[in-house]
Design a protein around this nucleic acid. Structure first.
Lengths: 273, 273
DNA sequence: TTCAACTCCGTACGCCGTACTGGATTAGAA
DNA sequence: TTCTAATCCAGTACGGCGTACGGAGTTGAA
């Protein structure tokens, strides 16, 4: 960290082309910046300018607060600035832009995950991991709006991933198999959370409850639904299969997953086609 | 449909309060409108005004075209209008707003799903269903940006759902069990697609390939990754478990799912806790 | 004391969705 | 034929967004 860091360097400076990096540091400038924000150990020594009135954690906390109460779509730089009592552009001193702020927010809430103790049996570890993940989705439903395909590579996100990998390793899965089962668990959890939580969440800040939503679509069921065209759905409906989210109830799903994994751990190891 | 339908009625007219619906039709006005757009059989008889220069399918097709090439984020009403050679506000004659347009676009691309023949054995039906779904995600990656928790209730969306439910019914699953397994399949597919396709897709219109992305984060691996803090991840990495998406390769995943379901179909039926 | 480094932020630009309003066009009623 | 109501079409405008730019004020080190 020898070269001087001017404001222009710290700001995002609009995606420079591949040629214009004269230094030999790895990666792109934006990538380096966000990695530094996620991992940088200290706000480096006291420096030259005036004392900052806010801090990076403040900005992240404000973002989380707004997203928690109003949803991800309502999160704007102006609102964050307002919440902190500063001008909008001041935020760009701390954060390169909105999307990087979101990455930081995600890593920050992953820090709330209470990691399972390595001494527990693997089933309990996986179970606690799943419950904690669910709890975080429930506390911060805006996570569910995020694609989740490319999680930010932050310390807390990695802690959480490591915990699941480690639990599955204890169950006897390693390498690609471990990754596959880990993905199985995460995607099930995410899918169920999206179905259950984001309904309730959307209700909270649009004022339209899930029932009201379906009621608003009621004309469909009355006028257009064709019982002959969709016989299986009709049968499931009449059997109560859609009542309550019993089919993807969290407890049942967890049970299913664990027993499925146990079986797979017992049988195991015939390669695919 | 006796009461006159003026433009003000057809337009979205800003979420009227619950009191102001004088008629006794079910659901909210917006809900009725989008349901009609999805299901209305014909553009009702020839009517009074000037001949329309474009049509609803044109608008939907333009939206799909733009989203296919530039991504969901780049889909704007202005671009759609431009693509059709009309003014922006003209679109609102055909579609209540952007979000409804997206719903219509989704149902439209679900119409590309080649439903499996009911005469095939259920495994082949599920397999073909999964391949078709994957193909559609691949052709229209912007679907993956959509939450997918609340799919639009359109005819094609329901056709696709019905096909999976029916195949699983043939496998012996009914009621809530059918729903649970159907969700399992869909969420796995969606998760895998989000991981694999949206990478490639993002690369296409941001110009940043997945390798370039990881390269841009390269400083992280060099400077910050702590092999002691993340031992399992390190082990998996060294074993090649992250190389290639072998762990969640589509074929392997499909195999895994089908055999898992078969086992579950054989064992089955011990209730949870 | 000077000055470079730094924080803060007002202004402005180009996007976005869409409300409002009115003009042009047409089919049926008179 | 003339009139009129229904309908399509769209210009203008408003409030919101992310953020580039440039400059004013503040501070510690030279």
């Amino acid at each position: 960290m020898t070269e001087p860091t001017t404001q222009r360097d710290r700001r995002i400076d609009g995606r420079g082309s591949a040629e214009d990096r004269s230094d030999d540091q790895p990666g792109t400038p934006e990538g380096r910046r966000v990695v530094e924000l996620l991992w940088a150990p200290a706000p480096q020594s006291p420096v030259r300018g005036p004392k900052p009135r806010i801090s990076l954690p403040d900005v992240i906390a404000a973002g989380v607060a707004i997203a928690d109460t109003e949803g991800m779509a309502a999160l704007s730089m102006r609102k964050v600035a307002n919440h902190l009592g500063v001008g909008v552009m001041s935020l760009y001193t701390y954060v390169p832009g909105r999307s990087e702020l979101v990455e930081l927010m995600i890593d920050r809430v992953y820090g709330e995950h209470a990691l399972p103790s390595p001494e527990l049996p693997w089933q309990q570890r996986v179970e606690q991991w799943a419950r904690e993940t669910w709890r975080i989705y429930d506390a911060h439903p805006w996570l569910l709006d995020y694609n989740m395909a490319r999680l930010p590579v932050g310390p807390h996100v990695l802690d959480v991933s490591e915990a699941l990998y480690a639990a599955l390793l204890a169950a006897g899965f390693s390498g690609a198999e471990n990754v596959a089962i880990s993905n199985l668990i995460q995607w099930q959890l995410l899918g169920a959370a999206r179905s259950m939580i984001s309904d309730a969440d959307e209700a909270r800040h649009t004022g339209v409850s899930a029932e009201a939503y379906w009621d608003s679509r009621a004309s469909f069921w009355e006028s257009y639904f064709d019982w002959n065209r969709y016989p299986t759905m009709a049968a499931i409906w009449e059997a109560g299969g859609f009542d309550d989210p019993a089919g993807w109830d969290f407890e049942r799903m967890l049970d299913r997953l664990l027993t499925g994994i146990e079986q797979s751990s017992a049988v195991s190891r015939e390669p695919g086609t």
